[in-house]
Design a protein around this nucleic acid. Structure first.
Lengths: 344, 344
DNA sequence: GTCATCGATTGAAAGGTTTCAATGCGATGG
DNA sequence: CCATCGCATTGAAACCTTTCAATCGATGAC
């Protein structure tokens, strides 16, 4: 029924404000952008007119004129994984300090969705784009960067690329996890994670293998249990598969590619009556808040989540401010946080 | 400093494309927007020119002309709470179907941050704004709606307001939780949650009280344990406070205002040697994925998270398409999902 | 009394896209 | 051969803001 966007049709523009205040366009703009240049009297008159009309700056027009926007975007791999929301939180703080908005998009692990978001951000002429890509080697990313849009890859690395990357040493993380398990006396261990297309998964497994070999243990005793995704549900399913193994071949410990998988596995194990860690030790990866909060607190490989986000955002803005800026490949070191799920 | 991003100065515009392809501006625009009106020959020529120049549409200019954008925004209360990311996921699907982008912002429970995000979205002339507000009665929201920006409140209701709201009956949710506990024989129960400024907390408590009274139980046996936030850490702290109570006054069951609090409490209880549910039953609220995945799977009041998001987004777009649209107040019914944390 | 100066204000141009009425042209029908 | 029609293309206007050189009026110096 009555919808009345207030009687007036369109929303008020600087022109309307100028007219009502009896000044020129330029003056209104000055009130907005260089208030010190305007006499106190005119300024209050203009401000009153703005308030009366409910004037809201049109950011599109502003951007068009300025050529750049007040926004940066982050395309995340999985918005429902707390790891990524924590990373985003770190970025948000940097953006807030610089008075920019952070536009969050979720690719949900799909390359097509990722591409759509990247295109849209580019069309918006954002100051720069942060992305945790489905595939860091995709030529689409290189194209993007070569077109001049500042770009930072988060949680992946790509040596020699034409953009900055901020990541965590996943190979080292994998080593830490398995070294810990070996130290605790485990001699039959499973790695649970997938899909293989995720670099994070490949490298964590690689690290696990290195540590395993260096401990002089036979390759066959490091079992790989692949999953189709890094989710709680997949962790639960993997738990059931493990439970199905003959006792001789069943591992005494599991290293999961991330905490979601570990939590699912933990739940399945406990509900199947397997005692953690006595009968089965579990190590996760990421150290999300839910890891410590699990009923059997989870040993996990901690990544500096917020720091990752902050650093990525800072590098992005550095590049946006200075296009001659040299690209950096920052790599953080992960750290093992031992808790009850491996400590008995 | 010369700041040549690439040799070419600015990025290519329709004008450049037109020139290279030897056609007029209008034709390029037609290729972009009404390709069927352009002869096959010219079309391919124009498309080649675009590819050669790496042409990217300037969304600001487009928006400026069109008066509206291809974007909707969601200002969420707490991006690190999986409940809200699941709601956002539901919205994302609707947006994707309509070929819109969803701009996610996090107010992080702060009114100032919320205001900043709302202002920025308004300046961007988004098609509409979804928001789970810090305070649904804030006049700022009413102002926003009266200026003509389509607005939908998510997870809160506000009867008689000049905008749509989509919520879940929190009072009913509270009743379900407590009725369940009373059915299971509990006669001393605690409610854990806060701050009181959150309507969700107030109403869930209200429902709990109603159910308690209707069961004919004395008010004093429903203990309220306030928290300063709905987080895992606060749940853990509350657990410690409960553990400190003299045995006679200690509740046999706890109803937590959301699952994060419940998970924290569960962890504290288990690590303190309190057996769940035998010595302490726990009910959460939201039924996030981590609830079922907890090592003692959590009984929780399920909200239709994705459905909430989808409905909100649909209402928003309905209003954006038809400003005469009548505002609706949709209320979903929650549902109790009983799991081991109360079932022994 | 004139001129330079200074601060406040103005007006016009620019930025990239879309839209729409107008144009041009070849073909069709009379 | 003329009128008409349809189709592909064109050109100019509009969207709203910002910027910058130009203008105006007044003040102070000489």
């Amino acid at each position: 029924m009555p919808h009345s966007r207030d009687g007036s049709g369109r929303s008020a523009s600087v022109k309307d404000v100028a007219q009502l205040a009896g000044v020129s366009l330029g003056t209104v703009s000055n009130v907005l952008n260089r208030p010190e240049r305007v006499s106190a009297d005119t300024r209050t008159r203009v401000e009153k007119a703005m308030a009366d009309l409910g004037f809201v700056r049109n950011e599109s027009a502003r951007q068009l004129r300025a050529g750049r926007s007040r926004t940066i975007g982050y395309v995340m791999l999985d918005a429902t994984n707390p790891f990524f929301t924590d990373v985003a939180q770190g970025m948000e703080h940097v953006a807030e300090d610089r008075d920019l908005s952070l536009f969050l998009c979720n690719s949900d692990n799909r390359a097509t969705r990722e591409a759509a978001h990247l295109a849209h951000l580019q069309e918006q002429r954002v100051q720069g784009i942060l992305v945790t890509p489905v595939d860091p080697d995709s030529p689409a990313l290189a194209d993007l960067a070569s077109r001049g849009t500042p770009l930072v890859i988060v949680d992946r690395t790509r040596p020699g690329a034409a953009f900055c990357t901020v990541s965590v040493d996943d190979v080292l993380g994998g080593r830490l996890a398995v070294e810990h398990l070996v130290d605790r006396g485990h001699r039959r261990v499973a790695f649970v994670g997938g899909p293989d297309s995720l670099g994070q998964v490949r490298e964590r497994l690689e690290g696990a293998r290195q540590a395993w070999r260096e401990a002089g243990l036979p390759d066959a005793d490091l079992v790989v249990v692949p999953t189709v995704a890094l989710s709680v549900a997949e962790g639960r399913a993997a738990g059931e598969r493990l439970a199905g193994l003959p006792a001789r071949r069943r591992p005494t410990a599991v290293f999961c590619a991330n905490d979601l998988v570990a939590l699912g596995l933990l739940q399945q194990a406990t509900s199947a009556g397997v005692r953690v860690p006595d009968e089965l030790a579990i190590v996760g990866f990421d150290d999300i808040d839910f890891a410590a909060a699990a009923a059997v607190p989870l040993t996990s490989v901690r990544q500096p989540r917020a720091e990752l986000g902050r650093t990525a955002a800072r590098l992005l803005l550095a590049e946006a401010d200075d296009p001659l800026h040299a690209h950096e490949q920052v790599v953080f070191e992960p750290e093992l946080v031992a808790r009850r799920s491996t400590l008995g």
